[in-house]
Write a protein that binds this DNA or RNA. Structure first.
Length: 317
DNA sequence: AAGCACCGCAACCGCTCGATG
DNA sequence: CCATCGAGCGGTTGCGGTGCT
């Protein structure tokens, strides 16, 4: 329990705050090639002045190729509400049931939109009494019926306490909840998953779409989650452009010259003679843009320029 | 047009859990 | 069995964008 936990971002000299396109590129490229078996070592090896934790978060919440971006659909929102009713603030569990969504995203959506909506809806129900089944609220819980729209409640123990607060805290212990979940089925939308996923390992077949699923084989596999449908391989066709890897290899350790020797590509000569760390940049051109990024842009042809880049576009291709 | 307030999202922080030696 | 370490999770914060006065 936190024993001997080494300081993470507290280390001096590490970048914090928003990620730059260059950092994103570096992280994507590195993970594509080497995977992310060891987050702690990753930034050093990738030449990123970030802590591993930060890299992991960035990848999971923003850079993963299987992420869905954009607004939640009505179906997703309803599923989220239902799952939150049952699981409380178990964002990672909920995320496991919403392919392409991350726990962080779900958490934000809940806190900024759905929480209010559900609270308002619950209030209306208190006032107006019986209402249509349209809005699922804390007091109107999905029924454990094979029929998605029917709603005979047998899940009272897990669903009656929401009025105490939208925090989602459940009175049940996790074990009780587990037992409950064994007995019931959520009237799932057509998302192709089973309730068991909430508590058990995420099936391999869902691997590419599962966000940060802790038990997923993807979560720490290296190389990362090369799956049958090749979702991940849709990523920047970096793999198909071997030169790019040599580009990356060539700059390897940039920004961490002192550590370059430890990098997998330590045979490269990333550091400029002046010994300046160049803040992760080696041979910047007149624009201050790293040469390898320019090459990457050319090879990928994904962005007009790295400054304009929108990571979403990477994966939309 | 400028200033202010609010909102949403990305990122950080600290704790817990699970694996390993 | 215990100590240590790394990863993951959930809560919180800060910043940028947008709408309102």
């Amino acid at each position: 329990m936190g024993k001997g936990r080494a300081p993470c971002c507290a280390k001096v000299g590490l970048n914090r705050g928003s990620w730059t396109p260059e950092e994103d590129m570096r992280l994507i490229a590195y993970i594509q090639k080497y995977g992310h078996a060891n987050w702690r070592a990753l930034p050093k090896q990738a030449g990123l002045l970030r802590c591993g934790k930060s890299c992991r978060l960035r990848w999971i919440n923003y850079l993963r190729p299987d992420l869905k971006r954009g607004n939640f659909t009505v179906e997703e929102e309803e599923t989220l509400i239902k799952l939150h009713n049952m699981l409380g603030n178990k964002w990672s569990k909920i995320a496991a049931c919403l392919p392409g969504r991350t726990d962080n995203e779900i958490k934000n959506v809940w806190n900024t939109h759905l929480k209010k909506r559900v609270a308002a809806s619950a209030g209306e129900q208190k006032k107006g009494g019986a209402k249509g089944k349209k809005k699922t609220t804390c007091v109107d819980v999905p029924a454990p019926s094979p029929s998605p729209s029917s709603s005979t409640t047998t899940t009272t123990t897990t669903t009656t306490n929401c009025s105490s607060g939208e925090s989602g805290e459940q009175s049940n212990t996790s074990k009780e909840l587990e037992l409950e979940l064994e007995k019931i089925e959520i009237p799932m939308l057509d998302l192709g998953f089973d309730l068991d996923m909430l508590l058990d390992a995420v099936p391999d077949t869902h691997c590419p779409a599962i966000s940060s699923a802790p038990t997923s084989p993807c979560s720490s596999a290296s190389p990362p989650c090369v799956v049958d449908d090749g979702v991940l391989l849709d990523l920047p066709e970096i793999d198909s452009v071997p030169e790019l890897w040599s580009i990356m290899d060539g700059e390897g350790g940039a920004g961490a010259c002192a550590e370059a020797a430890q990098a997998p590509w330590s045979n490269a000569a990333p550091c400029q003679g002046d010994g300046t760390e160049a803040s992760g940049a080696t041979a910047d051109d007149e624009d201050g843009k790293e040469w390898w990024l320019e090459d990457l842009e050319k090879e990928l042809g994904l962005w007009g320029s790295i400054e304009d880049y929108d990571h979403k576009a990477i994966f939309a291709i």
